[in-house]
Write a protein that binds this DNA or RNA. Structure first.
Lengths: 213, 213
DNA sequence: GAGTAAATGTATACCAGGTGCAGAAATCCT
DNA sequence: AGGATTTCTGCACCTGGTATACATTTACTC
């Protein structure tokens, strides 16, 4: 079908990859804030202007790799088998991610991934970018809920923000622990237990939070 | 006790206020992105360097006014009367905020406030700053829950992110509706109903989300 | 009240991220 | 091969933010 992307298209893809690779390499080696976009452009043998034609901001040089995951929860909810509740689908998907050490769960300890996570955790501008990411995930998930669970607008939005917030909190907790040394295999059991607890809380609500005595 | 703040202190406060006022005035008139910090400094009759001594970033010129609210939910939870569940305290506080048209609920339609909200909603960098704000609110609330509800670390964090996310979603929804014209009095009933629904969802959990049929 | 230490403010120059523009170079199409 | 179109580049420029080195003001002490 796409056997002929055309030279122009192929070259664009190669340039895109070259810039991204140069950026990641330099950032991992010297730190995100220590490397300027001019240096990245030079390393990728491209002008600064061209770099910004491919990546709108410096942060995107890092975050574009996660772009697919922005709609991941929405896709999971849409693809759930008949009879399955949205939350069940999300929970199972997350547990599977933990098993497979999917980086999105924070439970991948390959050195590259660990350094990448540490880099993001340490750079405020990258964390800010991740928040925008969360916002996109909320919107996509809300729409999926509306369309596949016959849920009113407000309920869908509220459920979406809760699910995304919890999902992110779990992943971030894992990533933080692994970023500074804890091995994934050692963390796995705890991560599963935490996820089970978190999704139970999400399902059953906060009404059991202890009152002031 | 503090009858003598000292000349230096008073002058600092006046400078702080002068810069903030100049900034808000210019931003509301011409838009956040259309006004440079240099212009703000000039209007406040202060050097650029001094401006940055008072406000670390351009965004802080706007957002510093909300700084107190960052720990508001935490304070509400701490101050709840004995026998009250944390969520109840937060809900009652929010409903009271709606009644009083507290800008933090998004339900204040004074022209100044409305334009301010619209400005924030429209400027991505300001929204990003608000997200950081949310993160701070989450941390503070989690700590309050841990300390006053004898809640384990993880539960406190998860409850906090859910509560803050829902609280923010409600406020933002109100602000968006008012920003472009809907009067607060007209929106009030709907806002109350939405809040009731949202807190019920938070209390009872998402387990009733419809499965795929 | 004069003099001095500490705190604040200023001017200037600078850096980095990001954009606008005019023209060169590569690609595509016939 | 050659013109139309897209992409890349170099350059100048703007803005947010910081470093340095110096001037000014306030507070404190005698």
């Amino acid at each position: 079908m796409d056997g002929k992307p055309g030279l122009r298209e192929r070259k664009k893809q190669r340039t895109h990859a070259a810039i991204s690779d140069a950026a990641i390499t330099l950032f991992l080696e010297h730190g995100f804030n220590q490397v300027s976009v001019a240096q990245v452009a030079e390393a990728a043998e491209v002008s600064k202007r061209t770099l910004f034609a491919y990546f709108p901001t410096k942060e995107d040089l890092v975050v574009h790799r996660l772009a697919d995951h922005e709609t991941e929860l929405a896709r999971v909810v849409r693809a759930r088998p008949p009879g399955t509740a949205p939350l069940t689908a999300v929970r199972e998907h997350f547990l599977e991610g933990l098993r497979e050490r999917d980086p999105i769960t924070g439970l991948n300890d390959h050195p590259q991934v660990r350094r990448l996570h540490r880099m993001i955790l340490d750079a405020p501008s990258l964390m800010a970018r991740m928040e925008r990411f969360k916002t996109g995930a909320e919107r996509a998930l809300a729409q999926a809920l509306r369309e596949t669970a016959d849920t009113p607008e407000l309920t869908a939005r509220l459920a979406a923000v809760q699910i995304v917030a919890v999902h992110w909190a779990l992943a971030q907790d894992n990533a933080e622990r692994l970023a500074y040394g804890e091995p994934a295999d050692k963390r796995h059991a705890g991560a599963v237990a935490d996820a089970a607890h978190a999704f139970a809380l999400l399902e059953n609500g906060l009404r059991h939070l202890p009152p002031r005595q």
